[in-house]
Simulated scan of single mutants.
Amino acid sequence: MKTASSSSSSSHGFPATASLCTPYLLLVPLGLLAVVLVVPSLGSSHVRSDGLGVLCRAGPSAADGYLVTPGGDAASAAAETKAVVRPELRLLVGVLTTPKRYERRNIVRLAYALQPAVPPGVAQVDVRFVFCCVADPVDAQLVALEAARHGDILVLNCTENMNDGKTHEYLSSVPRMFASSPYDYVMKTDDDTYLRVAALVDELRHKPRDDVYLGYGFAVGDDPMQFMHGMGYVVSWDVATWVSTNEDILRYNDTHGPEDLLVGKWLNIGRRGKNRYSLRPRMYDLNWDMDNFRPDTVLVHMLKDNRRWAAAFRYFNVTAGLQPSNLYHFP
C-alpha cells in the first residue's frame, strides 16, 4: 500500500498530500448525514406526501407488503425461495383500519407474524393495512413511519369512512395497483379479526381461481348466502376486476350503506361470484364470555379490546414458542 511520502497520488487518482486530505476528511460526516437522510426516502416509494400532512397512495410495487413468514434467517430463506418457486396461489389480505389505531395494528402484525409460515410453494400471502387519505399531520407522519418500517400500508384515494365507499374503493383500486402482478384472491377483513392464514389457505387451495365469493354466508330469505359477513370475505381476482370496471355501482351511488351487504348486492345483480362458499361455523363472532373458540377456526371476529386479543392468543398457543430467559418471566 502506497503512502503519502512515497507517491503524490493514490491508486484512485486522488491527491494524497496532507493539505488536500483535510477537506475531504471534513466532508465525511456530511456524507454520512446525507446517507441517513436521503436513502430512507429513496426506499419509500410506496407512499407520497400530497401537501402537508396528507398521505395518499402513489402506485405501489407488487413486491411491497407484509409477507406472512417467520422472522430471522427463516424469513430470508423464505423470501429467497419465493423468488424461484411459483406458489399455487397468491392472496392479498386487506385489513381495513383507521390512522389512529396504532396499538391495534401492532397487535395484528404480531398476530400474523407469529403464525406458522405457509410453505412458499403453496401460497404467498401479503397482508396490508388499508386507509383512506391520512389528512391529520401527526397521523400522516406516524403512518409514514409504519410504511417505511413495515412496508404494509396501502392508502386509498378517499375520505376515511366505514360504510360510505371505502370497501368499494379498496376492491376497485387493487386490480389497478397490482395489475403487473395480479393475485389469485383478494380478501377484505377488519382490525378486530384474527385470521389463521394456513387454515384459509387450505380452504382456497382446492377452490376455483375464478368467480369465487367466500366467507361467512349470511342468509336472506331462501338464499343461504345472499352476502358474506364483513368480518372477512374473499373474492377471486376476476371478481375484484369486475367491481373496478362496473360503472353502474357508482352511477347509482350504490356504495353507501352496510358494506358487506352492498358487496353481495353488486355481485347478485351482476351475476358474479357464482362459486360461493360459506365457512360457517369455522368463521364466527367471539361471544360475550369468550368461551366459543374452536380448534378448527379459520377466522374469529369481535376482538374489540386487548383482553379479547389476549384470550385468542392464549387459546391458540401463540406464545408457545417463547424461549426461557432471565430477562423476563410470565405467569
Rank of each mutant, 00 (worst) to 15 (best):
Lys166Ala: 07
His168Val: 00
Tyr170His: 01
Tyr170Lys: 03
Leu171Tyr: 14
Leu171Val: 09
Leu171Glu: 12
Ser172Lys: 05
Ser173Pro: 04
Val174Lys: 07
Val174Gly: 00
Pro175Met: 08
Pro175Lys: 07
Pro175Gln: 03
Arg176His: 13
Met177Phe: 13
Ala179Phe: 04
Ala179Ser: 09
Ser180Gly: 15
Pro182Arg: 06
Asp184Leu: 05
Asp184Lys: 07
Tyr185Asn: 04
Val186Met: 03
Val186Glu: 04
Val186Asp: 00
Val186Asn: 02
Met187Arg: 06
Met187Gly: 02
Met187Leu: 11
Met187Thr: 04
Met187Ser: 02
Lys188Cys: 03
Lys188Ala: 02
Thr189Arg: 01
Asp190His: 06
Asp191Arg: 04
Asp192Gln: 03
Thr193Gly: 00
Thr193His: 00
Thr193Trp: 00
Tyr194Val: 06
Tyr194Asp: 08
Tyr194Phe: 14
Leu195Asp: 08
Arg196Trp: 12
Ala198Leu: 10
Ala199Phe: 14
Ala199Tyr: 13
Leu200Tyr: 12
Leu200Ser: 06
Val201Pro: 05
Val201Tyr: 10
Asp202Ala: 15
Glu203Asn: 06
Glu203Ser: 04
Arg205Pro: 04
His206Gln: 14
His206Lys: 08
Lys207Trp: 13
Pro208Trp: 10
Arg209Trp: 13
Arg209Met: 10
Asp210His: 15
Asp210Gly: 05
Asp211Pro: 05
Asp211Asn: 12
Asp211Val: 02
Val212Asp: 08
Tyr213Pro: 01
Tyr213Arg: 11
Tyr216Glu: 14
Gly217Ala: 12
Phe218Cys: 07
Val220Asn: 05
Gly221Asn: 12
Asp222Glu: 15
Asp223Gln: 11
Asp223Leu: 09
Pro224Cys: 12
Pro224Thr: 09
Phe227Arg: 00
Met228Trp: 00
Gly230Lys: 08
Met231Glu: 09
Met231Ala: 15
Gly232Phe: 08
Tyr233Arg: 01
Tyr233Val: 04
Val234His: 09
Val235Ser: 01
Ser236Trp: 08
Ser236Arg: 08
Trp237Cys: 06
Asp238Phe: 14
Val239Phe: 06
Val239Tyr: 01
Ala240Trp: 06
Thr241Lys: 13
Thr241Gly: 13
Trp242Lys: 09
Trp242Ser: 09
Val243Thr: 08
Ser244Glu: 11
Thr245Tyr: 01
Thr245Leu: 06
Glu247Ala: 14
Glu247Arg: 15
Glu247Trp: 01
Glu247Asn: 10
Asp248Val: 10
Ile249Gly: 04
Ile249Met: 11
